[in-house]
Design a protein around this nucleic acid. Structure first.
Ligand SMILES: [Zn+2]
Ligand SMILES: [Zn+2]
Ligand SMILES: [Zn+2]
Ligand SMILES: [Zn+2]
Lengths: 175, 175
DNA sequence: ATGCAAAATGCGATAATGTTACATTTCTTG
DNA sequence: CAAGAAATGTAACATTATCGCATTTTGCAT
């Protein structure tokens, strides 16, 4: 139950992204954060697919819509969205994707919860797993050394089930 | 048992790094890889501490020793060392550190084994854990979604036991 | 409403990290 | 030694991210 992973074959991404934007709106209001136009637009670009996008990709998309921005503007918005927990950053590829687990996550997680991302090397889709159950296990391992973990991120590269089923044909799903 | 973690307080790093260089030598010979002077020197810089160093830091150290190199030369050596499994790359900080688990690792690991790094945010020392036991657990989680994991890296940030004991005083250990 | 302070954004330059293309040197092997 | 492969040198360039300061927008108290 719960844990949203990869979008299914018949995934309605229009609805998916609408829900995400609506959630972001409320989430920010609730926390007294300012969900400005720029931040909204940047999130909207990031959430346009379930793939991770680079900062300069976002810049380019804006540019092709006639909206010229400086890199710093995009980075500032990305930083805001990261802090707000609305997006994540894939460290291994310097790219950003929208968190699809917002809805479940608002309940404060008491213990060390690792972020766990599944990255399909074929279609580049990102799946996010609930790390709550993994957290205590990792803590056990780590505690033996006296290390006090604060936060962690696990990036797993492989092939998603859709791509396996399709024999790794280059999927051009946009979400 | 086994799994080498953080260096202990009385750690003899001179010996530690000597052993590492000796191992690297034999490891490369064994695999028919060319452990050239440049690669040796780069590894030596990376292994000079248990902290992660950036590519341009290595460049600078060489420069201050009168050895002027182009970035690409360092990156090529780093790539070689990464491929040889002699160093790892911290994705979250674009930096590189020497693998201290070489000695245990040569036995081929049959299943998906995640790389697990502990990063002390106080003294920046890196510890590396044996991920073999974590691997199957992660696989279990992931398999439920049909995702086929190939390789993964877990970066855990926190505070090492030495820094906890010393009340987070800025440790200037060089190893 | 008005004015003030803080937050957000614009703008230009620059830093930090990593790569391409091709020439030259060094190594290996017969 | 000769010839091919691997490694390194050299210069330019690409990508990712940040600094410093001016300007605009916003929230809030008066
Ligand atoms: Zn979707
Ligand atoms: Zn896929
Ligand atoms: Zn050491
Ligand atoms: Zn420490």
């Amino acid at each position: 139950m719960s844990s949203s992973l990869f979008p299914t074959f018949d995934h309605d991404h229009k609805l998916c992204s609408q829900n995400l934007m609506t959630y972001a709106e409320g989430h920010c209001k609730h926390l007294g954060l300012r969900f400005t136009h720029l931040r909204r637009d940047v999130l909207s670009e990031v959430a346009a697919s379930h793939k991770a996008v680079g900062a300069y990709q976002i810049l380019d998309r804006f540019a092709s819509q006639g909206k010229k921005l400086a890199p710093i503007s995009v980075y500032r918005s990305l930083d805001f969205l990261l802090d707000a927990g609305l997006i994540h950053r894939l460290e291994s590829t310097n790219s950003y994707f929208a968190c699809q687990r917002n809805f479940e996550k608002d309940s404060p997680c008491c213990s060390f919860e690792p972020l766990v991302f599944l990255i399909c090397e074929n279609c580049e889709t990102i799946g996010e797993i609930d790390g709550q159950t993994l957290g205590p296990l990792i803590e056990q391992f780590v505690d033996q050394s006296g290390f006090a973990p604060k936060r962690s991120q696990l990036e797993i590269k492989g092939v998603c089930s859709l791509c396996q089923a399709s024999g790794h044909q280059e999927l051009e799903k946009t979400c």
